[in-house]
Nucleic acid binder design. Sequence first.
DNA 1: AATGGAATGTAATCGATGATTACATGATCG
DNA 2: CGATCATGTAATCATCGATTACATTCCATT
Lengths: 228, 228
Amino acid sequence: MSTEKASRTEPGGSAASASTYHHGNLREALIAEGLALAAEGGLDAVSIREVARRAGVSPGAPFRHFPDKVALMTAVAEEAMARFRAEIVMSLQRETSDDPIRRIRAIGKAFLDWARRNPTHFEIISSRRVIDFAGSASLGADNAQIQAQMVSLLEEAARRGLLRIDDPRLIQITGRALVYGLARMLIDGQFPSWGVAETEAEALMERSLDLFLAGLLKAPTSGDPGRS
Amino acid sequence: MSTEKASRTEPGGSAASASTYHHGNLREALIAEGLALAAEGGLDAVSIREVARRAGVSPGAPFRHFPDKVALMTAVAEEAMARFRAEIVMSLQRETSDDPIRRIRAIGKAFLDWARRNPTHFEIISSRRVIDFAGSASLGADNAQIQAQMVSLLEEAARRGLLRIDDPRLIQITGRALVYGLARMLIDGQFPSWGVAETEAEALMERSLDLFLAGLLKAPTSGDPGRS
DNA sequence: AATGGAATGTAATCGATGATTACATGATCG
DNA sequence: CGATCATGTAATCATCGATTACATTCCATT
Protein backbone atom coordinates (compact mmCIF):
# COMPACT_ATOMS: atom_id res chain seq x y z
CA MET A 1 0.00 0.00 0.00
CA SER A 2 2.53 2.58 1.12
CA THR A 3 4.86 2.96 -1.83
CA GLU A 4 7.66 4.46 0.21
CA LYS A 5 9.31 2.50 2.96
CA ALA A 6 11.24 4.40 5.58
CA SER A 7 14.96 4.04 5.07
CA ARG A 8 16.20 1.48 7.54
CA THR A 9 19.45 2.35 9.21
CA GLU A 10 21.68 -0.59 9.96
CA PRO A 11 23.97 0.70 12.70
CA GLY A 12 25.77 -2.55 13.31
CA GLY A 13 26.82 -3.09 9.75
CA SER A 14 26.34 -6.81 10.16
CA ALA A 15 25.23 -8.81 7.16
CA ALA A 16 21.71 -7.58 6.50
CA SER A 17 20.15 -6.82 3.13
CA ALA A 18 18.89 -3.25 3.20
CA SER A 19 15.33 -2.21 2.40
CA THR A 20 13.88 -5.69 2.41
CA TYR A 21 10.60 -6.75 3.87
CA HIS A 22 12.42 -8.83 6.42
CA HIS A 23 14.73 -7.11 8.80
CA GLY A 24 17.41 -9.75 8.89
CA ASN A 25 18.31 -9.74 12.55
CA LEU A 26 15.42 -8.05 14.25
CA ARG A 27 15.85 -9.93 17.48
CA GLU A 28 19.33 -8.63 18.15
CA ALA A 29 18.39 -5.17 16.94
CA LEU A 30 15.49 -5.06 19.39
CA ILE A 31 17.75 -6.03 22.26
CA ALA A 32 20.29 -3.41 21.25
CA GLU A 33 17.65 -0.72 21.02
CA GLY A 34 16.28 -1.82 24.37
CA LEU A 35 19.68 -1.39 25.96
CA ALA A 36 20.19 1.97 24.30
CA LEU A 37 16.77 3.22 25.24
CA ALA A 38 17.28 2.14 28.83
CA ALA A 39 20.65 3.87 29.00
CA GLU A 40 19.18 7.07 27.59
CA GLY A 41 15.89 7.50 29.35
CA GLY A 42 15.61 5.02 32.17
CA LEU A 43 13.37 2.02 32.63
CA ASP A 44 10.15 3.77 31.72
CA ALA A 45 11.58 4.86 28.40
CA VAL A 46 11.73 1.25 27.23
CA SER A 47 8.49 0.36 25.49
CA ILE A 48 7.96 -2.28 22.88
CA ARG A 49 6.56 0.27 20.49
CA GLU A 50 9.48 2.65 20.83
CA VAL A 51 11.97 -0.16 20.44
CA ALA A 52 10.15 -1.25 17.29
CA ARG A 53 10.03 2.33 16.04
CA ARG A 54 13.77 2.65 16.41
CA ALA A 55 14.38 -0.61 14.65
CA GLY A 56 12.23 0.69 11.80
CA VAL A 57 9.61 -1.95 12.20
CA SER A 58 5.89 -2.16 12.96
CA PRO A 59 4.64 -2.14 16.58
CA GLY A 60 3.59 -5.77 16.39
CA ALA A 61 6.81 -7.12 14.92
CA PRO A 62 8.63 -7.64 18.23
CA PHE A 63 5.98 -10.11 19.28
CA ARG A 64 7.27 -12.49 16.60
CA HIS A 65 10.48 -12.78 18.60
CA PHE A 66 9.27 -12.30 22.16
CA PRO A 67 5.96 -13.52 23.56
CA ASP A 68 5.61 -10.47 25.78
CA LYS A 69 7.46 -7.52 27.20
CA VAL A 70 8.94 -9.53 30.05
CA ALA A 71 10.60 -11.83 27.53
CA LEU A 72 12.12 -8.90 25.68
CA MET A 73 13.37 -7.33 28.89
CA THR A 74 14.80 -10.67 29.96
CA ALA A 75 16.79 -10.85 26.75
CA VAL A 76 17.98 -7.29 27.36
CA ALA A 77 18.92 -8.31 30.89
CA GLU A 78 20.92 -11.25 29.58
CA GLU A 79 23.01 -8.95 27.43
CA ALA A 80 23.44 -6.48 30.28
CA MET A 81 24.41 -9.28 32.67
CA ALA A 82 26.98 -10.58 30.19
CA ARG A 83 28.61 -7.15 30.04
CA PHE A 84 28.46 -6.85 33.81
CA ARG A 85 30.16 -10.16 34.32
CA ALA A 86 32.76 -9.33 31.68
CA GLU A 87 33.65 -6.20 33.59
CA ILE A 88 34.05 -8.17 36.80
CA VAL A 89 36.29 -10.67 35.08
CA MET A 90 38.40 -7.86 33.68
CA SER A 91 38.73 -6.19 37.05
CA LEU A 92 39.97 -9.46 38.49
CA GLN A 93 42.54 -9.72 35.74
CA ARG A 94 43.73 -6.23 36.49
CA GLU A 95 44.10 -7.07 40.18
CA THR A 96 47.36 -8.97 40.07
CA SER A 97 47.63 -9.52 43.81
CA ASP A 98 46.67 -12.95 45.06
CA ASP A 99 45.48 -11.57 48.39
CA PRO A 100 41.88 -12.80 48.52
CA ILE A 101 40.73 -9.69 50.32
CA ARG A 102 42.13 -7.49 47.60
CA ARG A 103 40.48 -9.61 44.96
CA ILE A 104 37.17 -9.47 46.81
CA ARG A 105 37.55 -5.75 46.98
CA ALA A 106 38.16 -5.60 43.24
CA ILE A 107 34.91 -7.44 42.63
CA GLY A 108 33.02 -5.11 44.91
CA LYS A 109 34.54 -2.08 43.27
CA ALA A 110 33.70 -3.38 39.80
CA PHE A 111 30.14 -4.02 40.95
CA LEU A 112 29.77 -0.47 42.22
CA ASP A 113 31.44 1.11 39.20
CA TRP A 114 29.31 -0.76 36.73
CA ALA A 115 26.09 -0.01 38.59
CA ARG A 116 27.01 3.66 38.76
CA ARG A 117 27.78 3.87 35.07
CA ASN A 118 24.84 1.73 33.95
CA PRO A 119 22.11 2.47 36.46
CA THR A 120 19.18 1.35 34.36
CA HIS A 121 20.92 -1.80 33.17
CA PHE A 122 21.60 -2.63 36.79
CA GLU A 123 17.96 -1.98 37.57
CA ILE A 124 16.83 -4.28 34.78
CA ILE A 125 19.04 -7.08 36.00
CA SER A 126 17.93 -6.63 39.57
CA SER A 127 14.21 -6.10 39.38
CA ARG A 128 12.42 -9.40 39.12
CA ARG A 129 9.22 -7.62 38.24
CA VAL A 130 10.49 -6.62 34.82
CA ILE A 131 12.31 -9.80 33.83
CA ASP A 132 11.88 -13.54 34.22
CA PHE A 133 15.07 -14.46 36.01
CA ALA A 134 14.10 -18.04 36.73
CA GLY A 135 13.28 -18.61 33.08
CA SER A 136 16.70 -17.64 31.83
CA ALA A 137 19.52 -20.16 31.99
CA SER A 138 21.98 -17.48 30.96
CA LEU A 139 21.16 -15.18 33.85
CA GLY A 140 21.29 -18.00 36.33
CA ALA A 141 24.63 -19.23 35.03
CA ASP A 142 26.25 -15.80 35.08
CA ASN A 143 24.96 -15.21 38.57
CA ALA A 144 26.17 -18.57 39.82
CA GLN A 145 29.59 -17.97 38.32
CA ILE A 146 30.01 -14.68 40.16
CA GLN A 147 28.83 -16.27 43.39
CA ALA A 148 31.24 -19.17 43.04
CA GLN A 149 34.14 -16.82 42.39
CA MET A 150 33.30 -14.93 45.54
CA VAL A 151 32.89 -17.96 47.76
CA SER A 152 36.19 -19.45 46.71
CA LEU A 153 37.95 -16.19 47.52
CA LEU A 154 36.31 -16.09 50.93
CA GLU A 155 37.29 -19.67 51.63
CA GLU A 156 40.84 -18.83 50.70
CA ALA A 157 40.76 -15.88 53.07
CA ALA A 158 39.47 -18.12 55.84
CA ARG A 159 42.18 -20.67 55.07
CA ARG A 160 44.79 -17.98 55.54
CA GLY A 161 43.28 -17.07 58.88
CA LEU A 162 42.44 -13.52 57.88
CA LEU A 163 38.81 -13.46 58.97
CA ARG A 164 37.36 -12.69 62.35
CA ILE A 165 34.33 -14.82 61.68
CA ASP A 166 34.59 -17.90 59.49
CA ASP A 167 31.28 -18.06 57.67
CA PRO A 168 31.84 -17.58 53.94
CA ARG A 169 28.22 -17.85 52.95
CA LEU A 170 27.04 -15.28 55.48
CA ILE A 171 29.88 -12.95 54.58
CA GLN A 172 29.14 -13.34 50.90
CA ILE A 173 25.49 -12.47 51.23
CA THR A 174 26.20 -9.62 53.59
CA GLY A 175 28.78 -8.16 51.25
CA ARG A 176 26.48 -8.62 48.33
CA ALA A 177 23.68 -6.89 50.22
CA LEU A 178 25.99 -4.00 51.01
CA VAL A 179 27.08 -3.27 47.46
CA TYR A 180 23.59 -3.97 46.24
CA GLY A 181 22.24 -1.47 48.73
CA LEU A 182 24.86 1.14 47.88
CA ALA A 183 24.14 0.79 44.20
CA ARG A 184 20.40 1.02 44.67
CA MET A 185 20.63 3.97 47.03
CA LEU A 186 22.58 5.80 44.37
CA ILE A 187 20.25 4.78 41.57
CA ASP A 188 17.10 5.44 43.58
CA GLY A 189 18.41 8.93 44.16
CA GLN A 190 18.58 8.63 47.92
CA PHE A 191 22.01 10.10 48.50
CA PRO A 192 20.89 13.71 48.21
CA SER A 193 18.50 13.23 51.12
CA TRP A 194 21.36 11.69 53.06
CA GLY A 195 23.54 14.71 52.58
CA VAL A 196 25.73 13.05 50.00
CA ALA A 197 26.52 15.10 46.92
CA GLU A 198 26.71 13.48 43.49
CA THR A 199 30.40 14.18 43.29
CA GLU A 200 31.31 12.42 46.51
CA ALA A 201 29.10 9.42 45.93
CA GLU A 202 31.78 7.36 44.23
CA ALA A 203 34.38 7.95 46.91
CA LEU A 204 31.86 7.34 49.66
CA MET A 205 30.80 4.00 48.21
CA GLU A 206 34.41 2.93 48.04
CA ARG A 207 35.07 3.92 51.63
CA SER A 208 31.90 2.13 52.62
CA LEU A 209 33.14 -1.04 51.00
CA ASP A 210 36.47 -0.67 52.77
CA LEU A 211 34.77 -0.16 56.10
CA PHE A 212 32.94 -3.42 55.66
CA LEU A 213 36.04 -5.30 54.60
CA ALA A 214 38.01 -3.89 57.51
CA GLY A 215 35.33 -5.20 59.82
CA LEU A 216 35.86 -8.69 58.50
CA LEU A 217 39.57 -8.78 59.17
CA LYS A 218 41.39 -9.75 62.32
CA ALA A 219 44.04 -7.08 62.00
CA PRO A 220 42.51 -3.74 62.93
CA THR A 221 43.20 -1.70 59.85
CA SER A 222 41.63 1.59 58.92
CA GLY A 223 40.59 2.42 55.39
CA ASP A 224 42.36 0.47 52.68
CA PRO A 225 42.64 -3.14 53.79
CA GLY A 226 45.97 -4.79 53.08
CA ARG A 227 48.30 -2.73 50.94
CA SER A 228 50.36 -5.72 49.90
CA MET B 1 -28.83 10.61 32.87
CA SER B 2 -28.34 7.37 34.76
CA THR B 3 -31.11 7.29 37.33
CA GLU B 4 -29.37 4.73 39.50
CA LYS B 5 -26.18 5.53 41.28
CA ALA B 6 -23.98 2.64 42.32
CA SER B 7 -24.20 2.03 46.03
CA ARG B 8 -21.15 3.48 47.66
CA THR B 9 -19.58 1.27 50.29
CA GLU B 10 -18.01 3.13 53.17
CA PRO B 11 -15.60 0.57 54.67
CA GLY B 12 -14.08 2.91 57.20
CA GLY B 13 -17.30 3.93 58.78
CA SER B 14 -15.92 7.40 59.33
CA ALA B 15 -18.28 10.32 59.24
CA ALA B 16 -19.42 10.45 55.64
CA SER B 17 -22.93 11.04 54.45
CA ALA B 18 -23.89 8.10 52.24
CA SER B 19 -25.12 8.43 48.67
CA THR B 20 -24.22 12.05 48.26
CA TYR B 21 -22.68 13.63 45.25
CA HIS B 22 -19.62 14.56 47.24
CA HIS B 23 -17.60 11.83 48.84
CA GLY B 24 -16.73 13.62 52.05
CA ASN B 25 -13.11 12.60 52.47
CA LEU B 26 -12.01 11.37 49.11
CA ARG B 27 -8.41 12.35 49.56
CA GLU B 28 -7.89 10.13 52.57
CA ALA B 29 -9.92 7.36 51.01
CA LEU B 30 -7.73 7.44 47.89
CA ILE B 31 -4.59 7.19 49.99
CA ALA B 32 -6.04 4.31 51.96
CA GLU B 33 -7.04 2.46 48.81
CA GLY B 34 -3.62 3.12 47.37
CA LEU B 35 -1.97 1.54 50.40
CA ALA B 36 -4.34 -1.42 50.31
CA LEU B 37 -3.93 -1.95 46.60
CA ALA B 38 -0.15 -1.84 46.94
CA ALA B 39 -0.21 -4.32 49.77
CA GLU B 40 -2.41 -6.69 47.80
CA GLY B 41 -1.00 -6.65 44.31
CA GLY B 42 2.31 -4.84 44.28
CA LEU B 43 3.31 -1.56 42.75
CA ASP B 44 1.82 -2.23 39.34
CA ALA B 45 -1.57 -2.89 40.86
CA VAL B 46 -1.83 0.72 41.95
CA SER B 47 -3.48 2.74 39.22
CA ILE B 48 -5.44 5.93 39.60
CA ARG B 49 -8.42 4.37 37.90
CA GLU B 50 -8.49 1.34 40.17
CA VAL B 51 -8.07 3.46 43.27
CA ALA B 52 -10.97 5.61 42.10
CA ARG B 53 -13.03 2.53 41.30
CA ARG B 54 -12.53 1.21 44.81
CA ALA B 55 -13.45 4.52 46.34
CA GLY B 56 -16.65 4.43 44.30
CA VAL B 57 -15.79 7.49 42.30
CA SER B 58 -15.22 8.42 38.67
CA PRO B 59 -11.80 7.96 37.04
CA GLY B 60 -11.18 11.67 36.87
CA ALA B 61 -12.10 12.47 40.44
CA PRO B 62 -8.66 11.82 41.97
CA PHE B 63 -7.23 14.58 39.85
CA ARG B 64 -9.19 17.07 41.94
CA HIS B 65 -6.99 16.10 44.89
CA PHE B 66 -3.72 15.21 43.22
CA PRO B 67 -2.27 16.90 40.14
CA ASP B 68 -0.84 13.62 38.85
CA LYS B 69 -0.05 10.06 39.80
CA VAL B 70 3.28 10.98 41.36
CA ALA B 71 1.47 13.29 43.77
CA LEU B 72 -0.92 10.54 44.81
CA MET B 73 1.88 8.07 45.29
CA THR B 74 3.81 10.64 47.29
CA ALA B 75 0.85 11.01 49.63
CA VAL B 76 0.67 7.23 49.92
CA ALA B 77 4.40 7.21 50.65
CA GLU B 78 3.94 9.78 53.39
CA GLU B 79 1.45 7.57 55.15
CA ALA B 80 3.65 4.51 54.69
CA MET B 81 6.67 6.39 55.97
CA ALA B 82 4.74 7.54 59.05
CA ARG B 83 3.90 3.93 59.86
CA PHE B 84 7.46 2.89 59.23
CA ARG B 85 8.84 5.51 61.57
CA ALA B 86 6.25 4.66 64.19
CA GLU B 87 7.44 1.07 64.14
CA ILE B 88 11.04 2.14 64.58
CA VAL B 89 10.10 4.35 67.51
CA MET B 90 8.21 1.47 69.09
CA SER B 91 11.12 -0.90 68.65
CA LEU B 92 13.36 1.59 70.41
CA GLN B 93 10.90 1.81 73.29
CA ARG B 94 10.89 -1.96 73.58
CA GLU B 95 14.69 -2.01 73.68
CA THR B 96 15.26 -1.00 77.27
CA SER B 97 19.03 -1.34 77.22
CA ASP B 98 20.97 1.88 76.88
CA ASP B 99 23.81 0.16 75.05
CA PRO B 100 23.98 2.17 71.81
CA ILE B 101 24.92 -0.90 69.81
CA ARG B 102 21.85 -2.74 71.02
CA ARG B 103 19.70 0.24 70.19
CA ILE B 104 21.23 0.50 66.74
CA ARG B 105 20.55 -3.16 66.26
CA ALA B 106 16.93 -2.63 67.25
CA ILE B 107 16.56 0.02 64.58
CA GLY B 108 18.10 -2.23 61.96
CA LYS B 109 15.89 -5.11 62.97
CA ALA B 110 12.78 -2.93 62.85
CA PHE B 111 13.81 -1.73 59.40
CA LEU B 112 14.18 -5.26 58.12
CA ASP B 113 10.99 -6.51 59.74
CA TRP B 114 8.91 -3.70 58.37
CA ALA B 115 10.32 -4.04 54.88
CA ARG B 116 9.68 -7.77 54.94
CA ARG B 117 6.11 -7.34 56.07
CA ASN B 118 5.34 -4.39 53.82
CA PRO B 119 7.44 -4.97 50.72
CA THR B 120 5.49 -2.75 48.36
CA HIS B 121 5.19 0.06 50.87
CA PHE B 122 8.94 -0.09 51.30
CA GLU B 123 9.32 0.01 47.55
CA ILE B 124 7.09 3.06 47.27
CA ILE B 125 9.06 4.91 49.91
CA SER B 126 12.35 3.97 48.32
CA SER B 127 11.84 4.45 44.63
CA ARG B 128 12.23 8.06 43.67
CA ARG B 129 10.78 7.35 40.26
CA VAL B 130 7.29 6.82 41.66
CA ILE B 131 7.19 9.60 44.25
CA ASP B 132 8.43 13.16 44.61
CA PHE B 133 10.57 12.88 47.70
CA ALA B 134 12.06 16.34 47.47
CA GLY B 135 8.62 17.88 47.22
CA SER B 136 7.38 16.36 50.46
CA ALA B 137 8.28 18.03 53.73
CA SER B 138 6.81 15.13 55.64
CA LEU B 139 9.01 12.53 54.00
CA GLY B 140 12.10 14.63 54.45
CA ALA B 141 11.34 15.26 58.11
CA ASP B 142 10.69 11.62 58.92
CA ASN B 143 13.84 10.63 57.13
CA ALA B 144 15.92 13.25 58.89
CA GLN B 145 14.53 12.16 62.24
CA ILE B 146 15.58 8.56 61.70
CA GLN B 147 19.00 9.65 60.53
CA ALA B 148 19.50 11.90 63.54
CA GLN B 149 18.50 9.11 65.89
CA MET B 150 21.06 6.85 64.30
CA VAL B 151 23.90 9.35 64.30
CA SER B 152 23.43 10.19 67.95
CA LEU B 153 23.57 6.51 68.85
CA LEU B 154 26.75 6.08 66.85
CA GLU B 155 28.32 9.08 68.49
CA GLU B 156 27.45 7.65 71.87
CA ALA B 157 29.06 4.36 70.86
CA ALA B 158 32.17 6.20 69.76
CA ARG B 159 32.20 8.13 73.05
CA ARG B 160 32.21 4.86 74.94
CA GLY B 161 35.13 3.67 72.87
CA LEU B 162 33.29 0.71 71.42
CA LEU B 163 34.08 1.27 67.76
CA ARG B 164 37.08 0.15 65.77
CA ILE B 165 36.75 3.07 63.38
CA ASP B 166 35.36 6.36 64.58
CA ASP B 167 33.44 7.70 61.60
CA PRO B 168 29.74 7.91 62.47
CA ARG B 169 28.60 9.23 59.14
CA LEU B 170 30.39 6.54 57.16
CA ILE B 171 29.14 3.86 59.50
CA GLN B 172 25.63 5.20 59.31
CA ILE B 173 25.52 5.18 55.54
CA THR B 174 27.16 1.79 55.34
CA GLY B 175 24.71 0.31 57.79
CA ARG B 176 21.83 1.89 56.02
CA ALA B 177 23.08 0.52 52.69
CA LEU B 178 23.32 -2.93 54.21
CA VAL B 179 19.77 -3.11 55.54
CA TYR B 180 18.52 -1.34 52.44
CA GLY B 181 20.27 -3.94 50.30
CA LEU B 182 18.99 -6.85 52.37
CA ALA B 183 15.45 -5.54 52.17
CA ARG B 184 15.63 -4.96 48.45
CA MET B 185 17.22 -8.32 47.76
CA LEU B 186 14.34 -9.95 49.55
CA ILE B 187 11.71 -7.83 47.85
CA ASP B 188 13.30 -8.14 44.42
CA GLY B 189 13.12 -11.89 44.89
CA GLN B 190 16.84 -12.45 44.66
CA PHE B 191 17.27 -14.76 47.59
CA PRO B 192 16.07 -17.87 45.76
CA SER B 193 18.84 -17.47 43.21
CA TRP B 194 21.27 -17.10 46.09
CA GLY B 195 20.24 -20.38 47.61
CA VAL B 196 18.26 -18.78 50.39
CA ALA B 197 14.83 -20.24 51.05
CA GLU B 198 11.90 -18.04 52.00
CA THR B 199 11.79 -19.54 55.45
CA GLU B 200 15.38 -18.77 56.34
CA ALA B 201 15.39 -15.26 54.91
CA GLU B 202 14.41 -13.58 58.14
CA ALA B 203 17.03 -15.34 60.24
CA LEU B 204 19.66 -14.75 57.60
CA MET B 205 19.00 -11.04 57.48
CA GLU B 206 19.32 -10.84 61.21
CA ARG B 207 22.61 -12.71 61.22
CA SER B 208 23.80 -10.48 58.43
CA LEU B 209 23.06 -7.42 60.51
CA ASP B 210 24.89 -8.95 63.44
CA LEU B 211 27.89 -9.74 61.29
CA PHE B 212 28.12 -6.12 60.27
CA LEU B 213 27.74 -4.85 63.83
CA ALA B 214 30.35 -7.29 65.08
CA GLY B 215 32.73 -5.91 62.49
CA LEU B 216 32.31 -2.44 63.92
CA LEU B 217 33.23 -3.39 67.46
CA LYS B 218 36.63 -3.58 69.05
CA ALA B 219 35.88 -6.69 71.05
CA PRO B 220 35.89 -9.70 68.73
CA THR B 221 32.45 -11.14 69.34
CA SER B 222 30.66 -13.67 67.22
CA GLY B 223 27.01 -13.40 66.43
CA ASP B 224 25.00 -11.42 68.93
CA PRO B 225 26.90 -8.26 69.80
CA GLY B 226 26.89 -7.25 73.45
CA ARG B 227 24.52 -9.20 75.63
CA SER B 228 24.35 -6.54 78.33
C1' DA C 1 -32.41 32.59 54.79
C1' DA C 2 -31.10 33.47 49.92
C1' DT C 3 -27.61 33.48 46.64
C1' DG C 4 -23.48 33.27 44.19
C1' DG C 5 -18.85 31.60 44.09
C1' DA C 6 -15.67 27.90 45.22
C1' DA C 7 -14.93 23.15 45.81
C1' DT C 8 -15.75 18.70 44.27
C1' DG C 9 -17.31 15.04 41.20
C1' DT C 10 -18.86 13.34 36.26
C1' DA C 11 -18.66 12.50 31.34
C1' DA C 12 -16.31 12.48 27.33
C1' DT C 13 -12.22 12.40 25.13
C1' DC C 14 -7.07 12.06 23.77
C1' DG C 15 -2.63 9.79 23.05
C1' DA C 16 0.31 6.00 24.46
C1' DT C 17 0.98 1.30 25.63
C1' DG C 18 0.80 -4.05 25.71
C1' DA C 19 -1.31 -7.49 23.37
C1' DT C 20 -3.98 -10.26 19.75
C1' DT C 21 -5.62 -11.47 15.18
C1' DA C 22 -5.95 -11.80 10.21
C1' DC C 23 -3.30 -10.99 6.40
C1' DA C 24 0.91 -10.04 3.38
C1' DT C 25 5.59 -11.06 2.07
C1' DG C 26 9.55 -13.50 1.08
C1' DA C 27 13.20 -16.89 2.43
C1' DT C 28 14.20 -21.74 2.20
C1' DC C 29 14.23 -26.21 0.77
C1' DG C 30 12.13 -30.15 -1.60
C1' DC D 1 9.73 -24.05 -9.72
C1' DG D 2 6.66 -24.09 -6.10
C1' DA D 3 4.96 -24.96 -1.37
C1' DT D 4 5.72 -24.15 3.34
C1' DC D 5 6.98 -21.64 7.18
C1' DA D 6 9.21 -17.82 9.39
C1' DT D 7 8.79 -13.01 9.59
C1' DG D 8 6.66 -8.47 9.27
C1' DT D 9 2.20 -5.39 8.61
C1' DA D 10 -2.35 -3.55 9.53
C1' DA D 11 -6.12 -3.23 12.24
C1' DT D 12 -8.06 -3.61 16.51
C1' DC D 13 -8.91 -3.95 21.76
C1' DA D 14 -8.57 -2.84 26.72
C1' DT D 15 -6.18 -0.14 30.08
C1' DC D 16 -3.94 3.74 31.67
C1' DG D 17 -2.72 8.78 32.73
C1' DA D 18 -4.31 13.10 31.74
C1' DT D 19 -7.32 17.06 30.17
C1' DT D 20 -11.56 19.62 29.35
C1' DA D 21 -16.32 21.02 29.67
C1' DC D 22 -20.05 20.47 32.48
C1' DA D 23 -22.91 19.19 36.73
C1' DT D 24 -23.70 19.30 41.57
C1' DT D 25 -23.11 20.52 46.23
C1' DC D 26 -21.11 23.05 50.01
C1' DC D 27 -20.31 27.33 52.26
C1' DA D 28 -19.75 32.11 53.16
C1' DT D 29 -21.31 36.63 52.45
C1' DT D 30 -24.95 39.50 52.46
